[in-house]
């Protein structure tokens, strides 16, 4: 479950082991690969092994947080299995509403642009492009498309709208507008997670996540290149 939502490998192992101890197992051994978890628990000289398949979901930190709090709570209060199961079933994603997310992301990318020295008309265009891009991303995710396709289409939309900045010299810094409006697609979390995993000795997890992040970046580039060829602007010079 933690793996689904992008937690760090070390955290997954620690939490499972501690939860097992708190529930009365003598030991928990765990093995992780990017798409599955193998877990062996030793209870009263019997060992039980289960394998769980992991499905990759969008990163959701609030779920990770809730699982961790359940673990800490169980350790402190010596609760039983039924209590934990009940709690785990009640873990829910608390998503931010789309109407709040869209302008905030727009503002975030525009702020990036501002830090890189964009002028005020460019700021406006970046805001618009990133906000609409985020809208497209949320919409496509709801339709259950693969994350890769979502990224490519979002990048395509962002670049199309951001290229308005170069139209009739509306903004003097069109290049920066183009680059900062696609920043909402940078897969920073998988990259950092990959390196953190690799440093802590989970090499295969690290590689898996690195590959995932690289694929996302490639798809983003694909979207940008498509859009640029479509308009035929030479935005990068």
């Amino acid at each position: 479950m933690l793996l689904d939502y992008g937690a760090e490998s070390h955290l997954i192992e620690q939490i499972s082991a501690r939860l097992g101890k708190a529930l009365g197992c003598s030991s928990i051994e765990i093995s992780l690969i990017p798409s599955a978890i193998v877990l062996t628990s030793l209870i009263d000289e019997h060992s039980i092994t289960t394998t769980r398949r992991a499905h990759h979901q969008p990163i959701n930190m609030s779920i990770v947080h809730q699982v961790v709090s359940i673990c800490v709570f169980t350790e402190k209060h010596k609760e039983n299995l039924a209590f934990v199961e009940n709690k785990l079933n009640n873990v829910h994603a608390n998503y931010y509403p789309a109407w709040l997310l869209i302008p905030i992301i727009g503002l975030a990318c525009a702020a990036f642009g501002h830090l890189h020295g964009v002028d005020w008309p460019g700021f406006l265009v970046t805001f618009l492009a990133a906000a609409i891009g985020m809208g497209v991303r949320i919409w496509l995710s709801r339709l259950n498309y693969s994350l890769l396709i979502v990224f490519a289409f979002t990048a395509f939309t962002c670049t199309l709208i951001a290229s308005l900045a170069t139209y009739q010299n509306f903004s003097a810094t069109g290049g920066i507008v183009l680059s900062s409006s696609v920043l909402l697609l940078v897969p920073g979390f998988p990259y950092i997670n990959a390196i953190l995993d690799a440093f802590k000795g989970y090499l295969s997890m690290g590689w898996g996540r690195w590959m995932q992040a690289t694929l996302l970046t490639f798809m983003t580039s694909l979207g940008i290149i498509l859009a640029m060829h479509l308009i035929g602007i030479e935005g990068w010079q």
Binding site: M61, V64, V68, S69, S180, N193, T217, S221, W236
Partner: peptide, 29 residues
């Protein structure tokens, strides 16, 4: 009682070299 990545990763987001990566890709194209 929060996992650390919540704080740390959000905080380093502004430093991520997205602009350099983007320019690298553009020059490749």
């Amino acid at each position: 009682i929060m996992p650390r990545p919540i704080y740390t990763i959000a905080s380093i987001i502004p430093m991520i070299p997205g602009k350099y990566a983007y320019e690298m890709m553009i020059s490749l194209v």
